[in-house]
Write a protein that binds this DNA or RNA. Structure first.
Length: 423
RNA sequence: UGGGGUGUGGCCAAGCGGUAAGGCAUCAGCUUUUGGUGCUGACAUUCGGGGGUUCGAAUCCCUCCACCCCAUCCA
């Protein structure tokens, strides 16, 4: 069977074809504010997979621009997940926070170009001024500030002279843009918080729209792959890079995020379950986190295969969890030894058997070419699963009934002579 | 008449003008000391709806409909 190419690979090949890039560089850029789940696995598979397929490389970058939600325990979990899935990132782990100095310089460059200004409206005013989806917004009076004043204010913001929310750096684009994201987007906010890596070195932090595109650029990324909800952010992504005159730059491409029925994949909800103690930690086997699946016995191969099977597209979709379950069963089928357990026991006494013996019970079915067996004790008293016996069997019942004998796995055929009930 | 996206069988998803891949699920048969696995077969006269162009359309044009995203100093 010929595997068809997804639209991202088609695009990558096209870019390679026309010489847009000489090397494919992607990146997996999670925010370290929670444990990675199966949805991250899809992104990991795409980014590392594409880099691998086209002899490029993929970076692992912690998008740590929000000091109040991020933590080092999450970067460890993220690193472990990527490794467990079998991928290796290029060089060392990157951090957007490592680029803060450069990002700061780019912000100053924008101010000098008259393309960014310090706004002093409060949060509520900024929202009001932004207008609505159908009505144009209006520009803040502070947008008229001179380059000098903006530079001075920005410097003082950096020095920590102002309180959170007092001022903010925004791009000067278009307050009536039909794309709401382009109505003078916020670039840098004041945040007097301790960053898990940068400590208290900064009192201003870049926002996603400013930091992401530049981080991609700094790393030489060619294809910045993200999920659909960022489609509207693509215009800013391009605006920042183009306005700064950065050539030979990355371009953003979006795909639909993974949704699986009966599966909670919202980070907010998962965090809530963990915090409230509804589950025993991020690696609780009941959770769809990579760590949870690992403890549940899922294999990296099965998860990767699942990501491969569901494909990549731009259509919002909800994959049937049966598809995931098929992948894990399919993978485990030829790898795992079989043993038995009786959960709800029903006592069986074999009247024409005396003594006891040990039966060799193979670990693998006839069609799995693997050796190995364990000893199974056998005597006249044994227990079978309650569901494996029925006095009034429904149609199509293949197990033990008063009139139907059955073979005990690895042992003998038995038939029911008498039913003895407790009370 | 805000803008940006998406609509192919129950669920994913190929297809890019030449007469609907594949996977999951489901159903039937064979195999089977797991009602597992494996094998075989069945499963869209039809591609959100309606027009049009064409010898020919899921693929091009028009129009309508549905759903998702955007008004966090989150990412």
């Amino acid at each position: 069977m010929i595997q068809s190419k997804d639209f991202l690979r088609v695009k990558v090949e096209e870019d390679l074809q026309v010489g847009k890039y000489k090397k494919i560089i992607t990146r997996f850029p999670p925010e370290p504010n929670g444990f990675p789940h199966i949805g991250h696995a899809k992104s990991i598979g795409i980014n590392f997979g594409i880099a691998h397929d086209y002899q490029g490389h993929c970076n692992l970058r912690m998008d740590d621009t929000n000091p109040s939600t991020e933590d080092t325990q999450y970067v460890e979990a993220l690193k472990e997940a990527v490794e467990w899935l079998g991928f290796a990132w290029e060089g060392k782990v990157r951090y957007t926070s490592d680029y803060f100095p450069q990002l700061h310089e780019y912000a100053i460059a924008l101010i000098k170009m008259g393309k960014a200004y310090i706004d002093s409206l409060d949060e509520e005013e900024i929202r009001e001024y932004r207008g609505t989806v159908k009505e144009a917004g209006k520009r803040s009076k502070y947008a008229k500030r001179s380059v000098e004043e903006n530079l001075d204010l920005f410097e003082r913001m950096k020095k920590g002279e102002f309180k959170d929310g007092e001022h903010i750096l925004r791009a000067k684009i278009d307050m009536s843009a039909s794309n709401m994201k382009m109505r003078d987007p916020l670039l840098y906010r004041i945040r007097h918080a301790t960053h898990f890596r940068a400590g208290d070195a900064w009192s201003i932090y870049p926002l996603y729209d400013f930091a992401h595109c530049l981080s991609d650029y700094i790393e030489g990324v060619s294809h910045s792959i993200c999920t659909l909800e960022f489609e509207n952010n693509r215009d800013i992504y391009n605006w920042v890079l183009d306005t700064l005159g950065l050539s030979s730059r990355p371009y953003q491409h979006e795909f639909a995020r993974l949704g699986i029925n009966y599966t909670v994949m919202s980070k907010r909800k998962l965090l809530e379950l963990v915090k409230d103690g509804q589950v025993k930690g991020w690696d609780d086997p009941r959770l769809p986190t990579i760590a949870g699946y690992k403890r549940r016995g899922y294999t990296p191969e099965s998860i990767l295969n699942f990501c491969d099977q569901i494909g990549i597209s731009k259509a919002n979709s909800l994959v049937d969890v049966a598809q995931l379950e098929f992948c894990i069963r399919d993978d485990l089928n030829s790898k795992v030894p079989r043993v038995m357990a009786v959960l709800d026991p029903l006592k069986v006494t074999i009247t024409n058997y005396e003594g006891e013996e040990e039966i060799d019970a193979s670990y693998y079915p006839h069609d799995v070419p693997k050796e190995g067996y364990r000893k199974l004790p056998f005597s006249s008293t044994l227990y079978i699963e309650r569901d494996d016996f029925s006095e009034n069997p429904p149609k199509g019942y293949y197990r033990l009934t008063p009139s139907q004998s059955v073979r005990l796995k690895h042992a003998y055929i038995i038939s029911c002579q008498e039913i003895i009930k407790d009370s």
